[in-house]
Structure formats: C-alpha cells, structure tokens
Design a protein around this nucleic acid. Structure first.
Lengths: 352, 352
DNA sequence: ACAAACTATGTGTTCGTACACATTTTTACT
DNA sequence: AGTAAAAATGTGTACGAACACATAGTTTGT
C-alpha cells in the first residue's frame, strides 16, 4: 500500500466536499444526512450515490463543538470512609472527571452509608436535585435502587450502574464483575494448592448480599469433579471483635482439618490479624488490594487476592458516559471486567 | 454541594469570557495564552489575574477543529502469519484505527519477518516513504532498530515502541511489559505448586532474545530464600520436529525429578503436543493466550498462562499517539502493563 | 395569466480556538 | 511639533457540522 493509495482511501471528506461532488449545496447534503426531507428525488439520488462511494463519517469533533452543551454526571456510591474498598473507586471517578472536564463533562459525587439504607435514598434525592443528565451509581441495596430508578425515570435522568448489578435493570448500562465467576476462580486456585483430602473453609465476614454469589461459584467449581473436598461455610461478625477473634481462632485451631480459607470480601486482613498468634500454614485466598491485604500478601500469609478493580469500574463508568455524550460512542450494556489474580510478584502493576 | 455552587465552580469559560472580564480583546488574551508577546505589562497583568482566578483550560475540541490536520501513524510489526502471538496485536491496531479514523487519524500497518532481519529494515523504509507523523514499532532486532531510529530522525518522523523495549531508546514512548518480572511471577506460581525438593525446568523453545530476561527473573525469585529448588535450563529447536519431540520426551521421562516446566514463550503447546503420549503429572506455566495454549489450559495440562497482552499493547500504542495528536494529552514515557495470571476460570475475560 | 402556496435549494451564522491582518496607540527622532 | 517607526490592541476569518432563514423554483387555484 503506497502513499497515493493511502491518500485516496482515507481523504477526510466534509459535507462541503460531498456537496461539491454531488453538485448541490451543503444544506441539501445536510437534509439528506439527517432525513429532514424537502429534497428532490434527483438530488437525493446524487447525494446518496456520493455517500455510498466515499463512506462518509461526520467529524465528531465539529459535531460536538456545535452542540456545545455542558453534561452533568452525578455519581452515587458508598462512602469510602466507611469501607476502604471504595477508595480506589473515588480515585477512578476523580481521574475521569479531570480528564473530561475540559470537554465540558462535569462530575459530582455523593456518598451514602451502607449502614443506613435511608442515606442511599436521601443522597440520591440530593443528586437528582442538581438535575444531572445521568446518575451513575453503585447500588448496594436492591429494593432501594429500584425506587431510586423510578425517581430518575420521573425526572428524565438516565441511570448507569457500576460494581453492583441490579437484576431487574436488565436494560441499563453496567460495569462490574461476574461475582459468581470470581468464586470459581478462587476455587480453581485453592484446588491447585491443597490436596483433596483436606477441608476448605468459606469465610463470610460481616455478611453482605454479594457474598453468596461468590460462595455459589466456589462450590460450583467442584461439582462434577471426581474428587471433591469437604467445604465448610462460616459466617462471622466483627462488630464484637473479641467474639470474632475467638471464633476465628477456634476455626483454625479446633477444626484442624482445615487447610485453606476463602474469604469472600476484602476483610481477609481482619481474619489474619485475629489469628496472628497461631502458627499454622493456611492457604488463603481473598479479595481486593487494600493496603492491609497487600501487606499479608507480601508476607506470604495470603496466597492470592482477587482484584475487583473498583478504580477501573468507576473510571469506565464515567468514561463510557462521557464518550457517549461527546462523540456519540455507544455505551456497552454489560461490561464484565477481567478477574485479575494477584500475587506478590504482580501486585505493583495493579496499584494506582 | 448544591446546583448553584456547581454552576459557579465549573462554568466553562471561553477566551471571549476572559477578554470581557479583563477588559481587553480576545486577540490580546490569545497572545497572553500563547506567549506571543506584543502585550503591554498592564494588559498582561490583568489577563493573568483573571486566568489565575478561573483556572482556564482551553476547549480541546475547538482547538483540534482548528488544527484540522490528518495525522498518519505507521505501525511496523512482525507478520502474524509467522507467529500467531502477533494476531491479537493486529486486532488492537485495527480497533484503534477504526476508533480514531473519524477524528482524522490514519493508521497503516507494515509487517516484517522475524526470520529475515533485512525485511525489518526494508519495511521500515517502505513505511517512512509514506512520510507518516510517527512510526510505532515492535522491534525484535536491537541493532536494526537503532538504524531505523536514525532514519526516522533524519526524516523528522518520531518513534514510539510497543512490546519490545530497546534500551538505548530511553527517551522514547513504550508500551509493554517488564519481562524480567513476568519470570518472577511464573516462579512465584510454580513455587506455590511444587515442593522444594523437586527440580524445575526452564524451557526455551526456539530461543529469542527476550527469553533470557524471563529466565533471569525466574531465578531471581529464588535468590535469598531459605529453600531453593534445583533449576535446570533447556533450549530446544522445533525446526527439526522429530529431534525436538525426542528431546522433549527425554526431558520428561529420563530427567525424572522434574516436576514442573516454565516455558518462556508462547510455545508451551508445542511441548505438550510432543509429550502427549506420556502420562506424567507436570506443573506447567507458559505464556500467551494462543488458542492451542488455551486448549491445554482448559484440559488442565497447563496450570497458568501469563498474558502479555499484545492486543492491549498495540491498542494503547496507537491510542496514546492519537489522543496526543488530537487533544494534546501527554504520552506516558514507559507504560508497563499488568502481568495477568490466567487460569481456566478467568481466561474468557481476557479474550477478544 | 398571475398571485398565492408550496417545495426545493442555497446562504449565513454559531460553537471556541488560532492566527492573519487591520487599526489604534505609543515611542523616537528630526 | 510633526512624522515615521514600533508596539499594542482589536477585528475578522477558517475549521466542520448543524440549523435557521432567505431565496429560487414549481405547482395550484381563480
């Protein structure tokens, strides 16, 4: 392919070019492109012929310049002060906001408390009061999310989701992970590390809704296999820390066939701290790159962490919306991010 | 934060707004912004005061519209017909080209043959003949790359690299992976799966330059640890397949303390095919998501694959350049992509 | 046949930036 | 003081798409 061919192939045609080629004015070309009618069959045919020949694509930059609108995105998510898992998500939002601000996309973030369902609704109302173009939310509560969705529809605000999927919102845009599959990934890892005769513990700490999906996936991995290990499920609360510590130690010490633990959220470090006095070689798989988890990963106490990519989820959530506003890029309906497996040797590439 | 505050914070100021606020004309503001001089100290002070107050950022869209240039990127990379590793990279290039074409960024790809050094130089000349704005290349050959770099400088064409780093090009932009660290990742995985008494084989198939880095990283992982396993390095050629097969079988059968094999490139599947007759439980870690490798991964014969992300490397290589052209976004000097660990349970998210 | 009513088509302006060019103001020197 | 040169400042246009509006061309009705 030589330079000449290149030039011919990819000359950037404008409406003016098309108008000249078809022997009409740019107004007529515009009417054909936008099906605004008021075009004679003769002119229509000539313009369409040219359009077919050159594969015209409008310049998205010029189009947006004319639109000249300020787009507003409200983000509604759990307060990172309450759960450090959300801190990277805030970072992702901030980065995207910075990147798209010069283009006229404004982002405003509202935090709710996962300990108070009512704050979710309240903050959503606050967000809607600023009448954004779209509400991007990480909805921890299903029922309340549906209520908010109704409010949005009434206010003419579209909705996008990240991190937590609401089944009933099938048509909405979603960026997140298949949590069930993350359970399978964890099972695959543990399966490689321990022998089939030992018992595996699934440990839920401060149970939340999404954890059962992970448990299901974990168990599903072993279904239909010839040797299936024994799996025991535990559910502990950290609210009473002394009780939690005692139960954790019991789990490790007295249930002595347990060789591995799958912690279904980011709190593996809490468990490890609780059992720090005990010298037992456990295989541990947990979630999320919290600083405390990374510390235990690098010390070799956690074998693998599964990365839920909160930062990327949030960044993409905003980015998809912005690029759709600005350049008409279609928004993926359901974007399930890769399930990254983290070891001490590759963890640095997933931070920041 | 209410709607009013929002409005005040993020009003989109234009040059015209600034001119009015400072009581000068937009021409003067323009001269201040671009340091074109010919501005009285009085006017300069007034404009700069306003600029400081409002944190003005020019509209990248309008700026680009004015520039109205067609940007040309030539990509120079190994022919995917020769090595399937490169096929996803071609996909990445194609996707980026499609995405940025409406913005006036044109991409043309040239393939060279890794079996013929001369074709690398030849194709680079062909690429330079079309006088692109930048040459993005995956340089397998160091010495030849430097020569091409000289040609580019003479022709005023800037250079960006992906996949293969050339040490001497320290100032150039690079998208790729730290290959030494991938070796450490592989070692970490094998270390978890096998006991320290067994022997680990490092297997180079059809040796290339980059493999030694992986070997170094692999060995470095064990340095300073209390129990270090024995590591044996093998180097086989597939050009004579019968000999290769015999050597492979020898490796597995006769060197019978070997419990795990680290294949330093994408050809793990070739090795597994060669030893398919032998029933021995080997731990195998290899590279790259070739269909044949995935087949063996899903059958459980390969334990882990390390994903070198050729598609993303190529996509980002083009994307960074395009966004720099279009919106003046800075190009990261060295972007080392995460080293993804692939199992049968997460492989689907890394494909396509 | 001629105006009214309509259709078809062309022209002009806007968006925000960048730069060329025109105009005004200041400075320097006879 | 008067004028030329220099400096400062303002004005206008282009980029490409979108749309409002003006004009040209055609049909209809009396």
């Amino acid at each position: 392919m030589d330079a000449l061919e290149w030039y011919c192939m990819d000359k950037k045609y404008t409406i003016k070019d098309i108008a000249e080629l078809a022997g009409v004015s740019k107004g007529t070309v515009d009417r054909v492109l936008h099906r605004r009618g008021k075009v004679s069959p003769k002119a229509l045919a000539r313009v369409e012929k040219i359009l077919k020949e050159i594969d015209y694509q409008p310049n998205p930059i010029a189009r947006n310049l004319k639109n000249n609108k300020v787009y507003r995105i409200c983000v509604l998510m759990p307060d990172p002060k309450e759960d450090a898992y959300w801190s990277p998500a805030v970072q992702g939002i901030k980065e995207a906001a910075r990147e798209f601000k010069p283009f006229g996309v404004l982002v405003n973030t509202y935090y709710y408390y996962t300990s108070e369902k009512i704050s979710f609704i309240e903050k959503s109302k606050e967000a809607l009061n600023s009448s954004p173009d779209v509400l991007l939310m990480a909805p921890v509560f299903q029922k309340e999310a549906l209520e908010i969705f109704k409010h949005c529809q009434e206010a003419g605000v579209s909705v996008a989701l990240f991190n937590n999927l609401i089944e009933e919102f099938s048509t909405q845009s979603f960026v997140g992970q298949d949590l069930t599959q993350t359970g399978r990934v964890a099972a695959g890892l543990i399966h490689k590390l321990v022998d089939n005769s030992s018992t595996i513990a699934i440990l839920h700490i401060d149970e939340e809704k999404h954890m059962s999906l992970k448990e299901n996936g974990f168990k599903a991995f072993f279904e239909g296999r010839s040797f299936t290990p024994e799996i025991k499920t535990f559910s502990l609360q950290t609210s009473n820390y002394e009780a939690f510590k005692k139960q954790s130690i019991d789990l490790v010490k007295n249930t002595n066939t347990i060789s591995s633990v799958f912690v279904t959220n980011s709190k593996a470090y809490v468990f490890l701290k609780a059992i720090s006095g005990i010298n037992k070689n456990l295989t541990i798989v947990g979630y999320d790159l919290l600083p405390e988890n990374i510390k235990y990963l690098e010390k070799g106490h956690i074998d693998f962490l599964i990365h839920q990519k909160p930062k990327r989820q949030a960044y993409l959530g905003v980015g998809y919306l912005a690029e759709n506003f600005l350049f008409g890029k279609p928004i993926p309906e359901e974007n399930l991010l890769p399930i990254d497996i983290i070891t001490p040797e590759n963890v640095m590439y997933y931070l920041d």
